[in-house]
Write a protein that binds this DNA or RNA. Structure first.
Lengths: 203, 203
DNA sequence: CGGGCGCAACCATCTAGTTGGTTTTTCTGA
DNA sequence: TCAGAAAAACCAACTAGATGGTTGCGCCCG
């Protein structure tokens, strides 16, 4: 385990290298040797600090979730809600690793539990509860369904770049193209949020 | 190449086995030996008919796209539009392979062209044009952005089952849970479509 | 009889993880 | 304050098994 500042620095280097490698190649396609090369740290240190490849992958997912939680605040007001889809989209645009890692993880584990099950569940439950307050919705389960729809709306194009590129055309990869996509997604998010707000106002 | 009925049957068996294997494990995680085992066909036949692992993966993507194109019609009317998100969702619910394969492919190739670039592009352009007619939208690029939003809405939960399970709770995997999710996604799709129809009616 | 199909064994390379050390850093007791 | 011991960190080489792809043959059918 990394117990000294020097060890912590080594661990950080390994996590950063692993994040890039797993984001690009996923669990199965990533190579431990390449992670060591990218980090400039001996491969054996990976096993000393993390145990095995799967545990390293899990540590990377925790790291990027921590970053997103710190960077994109959970919306607790109506205005926060309106901004949320755009913020998630911008986060993916700027830091492309989390959404890819989430997708690699989902495809890899499918119906099996993820290593980080409890922490992740707590994170999502916390988000859903906050969203139910912002939406004025009594049922956090309903808020959770809205949440997953909004997250899906903002995240989907980053999972399937081939679909985005071929469906939206070559101009889609310009700044203007991204802005059009972003504006459309935000508008769609707004109409979803507005319809839920209307619905909860009449309940 | 499979030139006789017997050869065609072998090729079909290989493709079906490959579809299951690639859907579960992706390009990097799939094993050619396991594909042979699942199909009951000798491994050497894979190389005789497809050339290599990547070409087999591409053939599987073509196969599942052909199936989806035949099963979920491109909406050309307003009613067709309203039904579309639910149809995509139901398609994924019943045949879970395509959406996973699409995601594996997207993550794997990222910004690089896919092997099946031209056919896929034609398929998407065809869809976007049909959608622009159904939406009464002059610009197929705008229709394409709506299309990718609707597809994302319907597809996202199938890519990230861990997020669905932990965000929506354990009941989400019951028939009732799936129906609630489905109804919410359809409702969201409707408000998106309605807002675009309103927008294009006032243009 | 030739082409298509099929087979088990094989090959060269790759891979996650381990090993048997060395080096560096920290701590403790004199 | 320093020397020595112990702990932490580090290394290159290794291991056992896995892997995509190939080979040299035999069988079947038109």
């Amino acid at each position: 385990m990394a117990e000294t500042p020097k060890g912590q620095l080594t661990r950080t280097k390994l996590l950063e290298a692993a994040q890039a490698e797993f984001s690009e190649h996923g669990m199965a396609g990533a190579r431990v040797d390449r992670i060591a090369e990218r980090s400039g740290v001996n491969k054996q240190r990976i096993y000393a600090y993390f145990g095995n490849k799967e545990a390293l992958f899990s540590a990377v997912l925790s790291k990027v979730y921590e970053h997103m939680g710190a960077t994109v605040p959970i919306p607790t007001t109506e205005d926060g809600l309106r901004a949320y889809v755009g913020q998630v989209f911008d986060y993916h645009r700027e830091f492309g690793d989390l959404v890819r890692l989430l997708a690699w993880e989902g495809l890899h584990y499918r119906d099996r539990p993820i290593p980080d099950e409890k922490d992740r569940e707590a994170y999502y439950v916390h988000k859903a509860v906050a969203l139910s307050i912002a939406l004025g919705v009594d049922d956090p389960a309903e808020a959770a369904r809205v949440l997953i729809a909004l997250v899906g709306l903002a995240s989907w194009p980053f999972i399937v770049p081939q679909q985005r590129r071929l469906m939206l055309g070559p101009d889609s990869d310009t700044d203007a193209g991204w802005e059009l996509l972003r504006a459309g997604i935000i508008a769609h998010g707004h109409v979803i949020i507005d319809s839920v707000l209307r619905e909860s106002a009449t309940s």
